[in-house]
Lab assay of single mutants.
Amino acid sequence: EPSQADLDALLSAVRDNRLSIEQAVTLLTPSSGGGSGGGSMDAKEILTRFKDGGLDRAAAQALLAGRTPA
């Protein structure tokens, strides 16, 4: 399960175009075949909204942490 520091680094990389959204989703869902963790939004949607400015960093982190299976 990614830590808050991992999520923060991942969000920074996506925002700075050092990591594509697809690459980030793969890192967030290493063994689930890329499927959502059952959250209301999947990781790709969360990351896309964050990059487009629709979500701030704290909200994106909380959503990603919340949808990651324990």
Rank of each mutant, 00 (worst) to 15 (best):
E1S: 13
E1Q: 12
E1L: 14
P2K: 14
P2C: 15
P2M: 10
S3Y: 11
S3M: 07
S3G: 11
S3F: 14
S3P: 10
S3Q: 10
S3L: 13
S3D: 10
Q4H: 14
Q4E: 15
Q4A: 13
Q4G: 10
A5I: 15
A5H: 10
D6W: 15
D6I: 13
L7W: 14
L7D: 02
L7H: 03
L7K: 02
L7C: 04
L7A: 02
D8S: 06
D8Q: 06
D8H: 06
D8E: 12
D8I: 05
D8A: 06
A9Q: 09
A9R: 09
A9C: 15
A9V: 09
A9F: 12
L10Q: 00
L10G: 01
L10F: 04
L10C: 03
L10S: 01
L11K: 00
L11Q: 01
L11I: 03
L11Y: 02
S12P: 02
S12M: 06
S12W: 04
S12Q: 12
A13E: 04
A13K: 05
A13N: 04
A13G: 05
V14Y: 02
V14D: 00
V14S: 00
R15T: 06
R15A: 14
R15D: 05
R15P: 00
D16R: 05
D16I: 03
D16A: 06
N17M: 05
N17R: 06
R18H: 11
R18N: 06
L19M: 10
L19S: 02
L19E: 01
L19V: 09
I21P: 03
I21Q: 01
I21G: 01
I21M: 03
I21R: 00
E22W: 04
E22V: 07
E22A: 09
E22K: 05
E22D: 13
E22Y: 04
E22C: 08
Q23F: 09
Q23A: 10
Q23D: 13
Q23C: 15
Q23L: 09
Q23H: 08
A24K: 00
A24D: 00
A24L: 03
V25D: 02
T26Q: 15
T26E: 15
T26V: 12
T26S: 14
L27K: 07
L27V: 05
L27S: 05
L27Y: 07
L27C: 07
L27H: 05
L28I: 08
L28V: 04
L28K: 01
L28Q: 01
T29G: 13
T29N: 11
P30V: 12
P30S: 15
P30N: 12
S31I: 15
S31E: 13
S31N: 11
S31D: 14
S31W: 11
S31F: 08
S31L: 14
S32I: 13
S32P: 10
S32G: 13
G33D: 11
G33E: 10
G33C: 13
G33N: 11
G33M: 08
G34V: 12
G34S: 12
G34T: 13
G34N: 13
G35N: 10
G35V: 10
S36H: 13
S36N: 12
G37H: 11
G37D: 07
G37Y: 11
G37L: 12
G37C: 13
G38E: 14
G38R: 12
G38I: 12
G38D: 13
G38V: 14
G39L: 14
G39D: 12
G39R: 09
G39W: 04
G39Q: 10
G39Y: 05
G39F: 08
G39V: 10
G39E: 12
G39M: 12
S40A: 12
M41Q: 08
M41A: 06
M41Y: 11
D42S: 13
D42A: 07
D42T: 10
D42M: 09
D42E: 09
D42F: 10
A43M: 11
A43I: 15
K44H: 11
E45N: 07
E45F: 03
E45M: 05
E45S: 08
E45A: 07
E45L: 05
I46W: 02
I46E: 00
I46M: 02
I46R: 00
L47T: 00
L47Q: 00
L47A: 02
L47G: 00
L47F: 07
L47Y: 01
T48A: 07
T48F: 03
T48V: 07
T48S: 08
T48W: 04
T48D: 04
R49V: 04
R49M: 08
R49H: 05
R49C: 08
R49L: 12
K51A: 04
K51S: 03
K51N: 03
K51W: 03
K51T: 03
D52N: 09
D52G: 08
D52E: 13
G53M: 03
G53K: 04
G53S: 03
G53R: 04
G54Y: 13
L55Q: 01
D56N: 06
D56H: 04
D56S: 10
R57L: 13
R57W: 15
R57I: 08
A58N: 09
A58C: 11
A58Q: 11
A58I: 08
A58P: 04
A59N: 06
A59D: 11
A59Y: 04
A59R: 06
A59C: 14
A60F: 02
Q61A: 12
Q61W: 05
Q61E: 15
Q61R: 12
A62S: 13
A62N: 14
A62H: 12
A62D: 15
A62L: 08
L63Y: 04
L63M: 13
L64K: 00
L64C: 02
L64H: 01
L64Q: 01
L64S: 00
A65R: 10
A65P: 04
A65M: 12
A65W: 05
A65L: 12
G66H: 05
G66N: 11
R67A: 15
R67W: 15
R67Y: 15
R67K: 12
T68K: 06
T68D: 13
P69W: 02
P69R: 13
P69N: 14
P69Q: 11
P69K: 10
P69G: 08
A70Q: 04
